[in-house]
């Protein structure tokens, strides 16, 4: 698997500044600071702007150059709000109202089968709020993610906190954490996997926002082998104090022919891409896609 190294943003002073303003001025005060901080990133962080453009250009095809930059600015602000909200929750300063769509369906899946579920998520909304919403299922959630290396981010957002109900499986483990994933599914737990970036894994080509993009198919391949469902997990901020968490899209990937397994999984990956396309139509500034998933380097992984 190809290792992907990305620049880490944020430092202890910056997080202290936001924490302090959040305690003194509340959410709206902390949000207000974002407009200045994000303007700095828009002007000086060419890498971040460039990384956002692949998505913005396809999502807002009719926009001219200036409007596309404004869209990048809005995307930065939106992600900043997501980070502030995450800290707001983990620090116990308050909670958000959460509307959970599809709860009965996912509850039914867990009741009818001893197997767990793969939660196929994306870089959308706010996963900390999402985890809070899933607590009512009473199941352990395993997140397939690299341990946070940025100490400032880790401390401020309470990542890797040792929460009994939220555990991390590192993709750096032997065989990409496959054994731990299969064990978790076998035990009836939930396994959350990011589906909108390949991180060097084998990909399938999908139609997305008018172009060909590349998404990993590993979640579907694992689910087909383990005979468990895949539930698309999305969240979105719909007002200052309310989030929607959506688990209503359920897929049951199976393959008829092992020889054509990858081809058969492509239909499911495309279905997932359509869900994300619908999401970006409704919440265009909450898909934090700072990577060119349409780029040729992803295509290489597809072969």
């Amino acid at each position: 698997m190809k290792q992907v190294t990305e620049r880490k943003r944020g430092n202890r002073l910056g997080f202290w500044f936001f924490r302090t303003s959040l305690k003194w001025t509340g959410l709206s005060g902390a949000y207000g600071l974002l407009y200045f901080v994000c303007l700095y990133y828009l002007i000086f962080d060419r890498t971040a702007v460039s990384a956002s453009m692949a998505y913005i250009q396809r999502r807002f095809r009719a926009f001219n150059g200036i409007r596309k930059y404004l869209a990048v600015y809005r995307l930065f602000i939106s992600q900043g709000k997501s980070l502030i909200d995450r800290y707001y929750v983990v620090s116990g300063l308050g909670q958000f109202d959460i509307e959970l769509r599809g709860y009965d369906r996912i509850k039914g899946l867990l009741r009818d089968s001893k197997k767990g579920i793969i939660l196929l998520t994306a870089h959308v909304g706010n996963w900390q709020v999402t985890m809070t919403a899933l607590e009512k299922l009473g199941k352990t959630v395993y997140l397939l993610m690299s341990p946070e290396e940025n100490a400032a981010v880790k401390n401020s957002l309470n990542i890797d906190s040792g929460n009994e109900k939220v555990k991390i499986i590192s993709p750096d483990n032997f065989l990409g954490g496959i054994i731990e994933i299969m064990k978790a599914i076998d035990e009836g737990s939930l396994v959350s996997i990011m589906g909108d970036r390949s991180y060097g894994h084998s990909t399938s080509e999908v139609a997305l926002l008018g172009d060909r993009a590349y998404f990993p198919h590993s979640a579907f391949s694992i689910a087909a082998a383990a005979r468990c469902p895949v539930v698309v997990l999305l969240s979105a901020k719909v007002s200052t104090r309310k989030y929607v968490v959506d688990v209503s899209h359920v897929m049951e990937p199976r393959y008829r022919s092992r020889a054509k397994k990858k081809e058969e999984m492509e239909g499911f990956v495309q279905a997932y891409a359509r869900v994300l396309e619908d999401y970006s139509a409704e919440y265009p500034y909450q898909w934090f896609m700072f990577h060119d998933i349409w780029g040729p380097e992803n295509k290489a992984a597809a072969n």
């Binding site: 299969m182 076998d186 035990e187 590993s218």
Partner: peptide, 26 residues
């Protein structure tokens, strides 16, 4: 690769009746 490992785990479970939990850290 790692996706082949999924199939090997399934083989060990379904064909040989082994438990996946015993394979952790092995």
């Amino acid at each position: 690769d790692s996706l082949d490992a999924v199939e090997i785990v399934v083989i060990l479970q379904r064909k040989f009746g082994l438990e996946v939990k015993d394979l952790e850290n092995r």
